[in-house]
């Protein structure tokens, strides 16, 4: 039974990766666009300062990984609406492999983008160190899975593609701008910083920025991984329960409350970090350090 689930997940993953590679829009958003942002931000903001370049790499990696949120999870809604899923339903195949293959194929597609972004930053944009590559790898792996699972939740609770797009836009914008992935978190008023601790994206963004700049402590990275990991498990289980094969099968409004359950771990983390944690203090401290190094040490040239 379990071996079948794994086998079917892998079969589906392979075909979905292949289909994604044939989709130009997908390639644009997952590869070309983040690279464009990378060059743009580095040129405008880092002014040759390697520490800042590394920080920006962290932001771009965050955006790339958060892209899993759009990726193949949303495709399931399209598949459902087009009646493609119901063909799969005839085969001896549960919802599990269908959902897990979204996560796995997103991950497989994210890895080359991430590698290219790191290599480009290192060699074309002259970042000095490599950052904490192990931490980056772990955060990317678990982050991509978690954000895929969030995408699955949205796919599960929305009844049409249009609804999916709207909800995704809203959540995506919040993720992007309030997590520190674009504007450094330390620049925001303190109350927004506090609020951002309730958002999963913040744990990915601060984690990756710290890992890329090599400023992260072990315990910080581990908390990030735990927060994202719990989010992943909860989101996956809920989306499995809410999964629908049929275009006509509409979800009753009450079922949407399940989504709030995804928020529970992050509410817990947010409360903890706000009351007892030192994450924000560290974020501010790192930010100051980045600013001061850029004052003290002139950009090194290669």
């Amino acid at each position: 039974m379990a071996s079948n689930v794994i086998r079917n997940t892998w079969i589906l993953t392979k075909i979905r990766v292949r289909l994604a590679m044939r989709n130009r829009t997908f390639l644009f958003f997952s590869l070309i666009m983040p690279l464009g942002f990378l060059f743009f931000f580095v040129t405008i903001f880092s002014k040759g300062d390697s520490a800042w370049t590394a920080y920006i790499l962290g932001s771009i990696l965050t955006m790339t990984v958060m892209g899993s949120f759009w990726g193949l999870s949303v495709q399931l809604v399209m598949f459902r609406e087009a009646g493609i899923l119901r063909r799969f339903r005839l085969a001896p195949l549960g919802a599990g492999p269908m959902l897990a293959s979204s996560i796995l194929s997103n991950y497989i597609l994210v890895l080359p983008s991430v590698a290219i972004e790191i290599l480009v930053t290192k060699f074309a944009l002259h970042m000095q160190g490599w950052g904490n590559l192990w931490a980056i790898f772990l955060l990317i792996s678990i982050g991509s899975a978690t954000f895929s699972a969030f995408g699955l939740i949205v796919a599960s609770v929305t009844n049409t593609m249009q609804e999916t797009q709207v909800i995704n836009q809203v959540i995506w914008t919040a993720f992007l701008f309030l997590s520190g992935a674009t504007v450094p978190l330390a620049r925001f008023p303190h109350w927004i910083q506090g609020a951002s601790l309730f958002m999963p994206a913040t744990y990915l963004a601060t984690g990756l920025e710290n890992a890329a700049t090599n400023l992260a402590t072990h315990s910080e990275i581990i908390t990030d991984l735990i927060a994202l990991g719990i989010g992943l498990l909860v989101a996956f289980e809920i989306s499995r329960r809410l999964f629908r094969w049929e275009p006509e099968a509409k979800l009753p409004g009450s079922a949407k409350l399940w989504v709030l359950a995804v928020m529970i771990p992050f509410i817990a983390f947010g409360v903890y970090e706000n009351v007892k944690g030192d994450r924000l203090a560290l974020v501010r401290q790192d930010f100051q350090m980045l600013n001061s190094t850029s004052m003290a040490t002139p950009p090194k040239s290669h």
């Binding site: 075909i15 292949r18 009646g83 493609i84 063909r87 001896p92």
Partner: peptide, 29 residues
């Protein structure tokens, strides 16, 4: 499900799947 086969009235496949891939894919399940 192992015992039955069906042509559904309303269904589709991904636009960019190749004919051979589609048969292979389902065979493997």
């Amino acid at each position: 499900k192992e015992m039955i086969g069906a042509v559904l009235q309303s269904t589709s496949l991904p636009a960019k799947i190749r004919v051979k891939e589609a048969i292979d894919l389902f065979a493997n399940f």
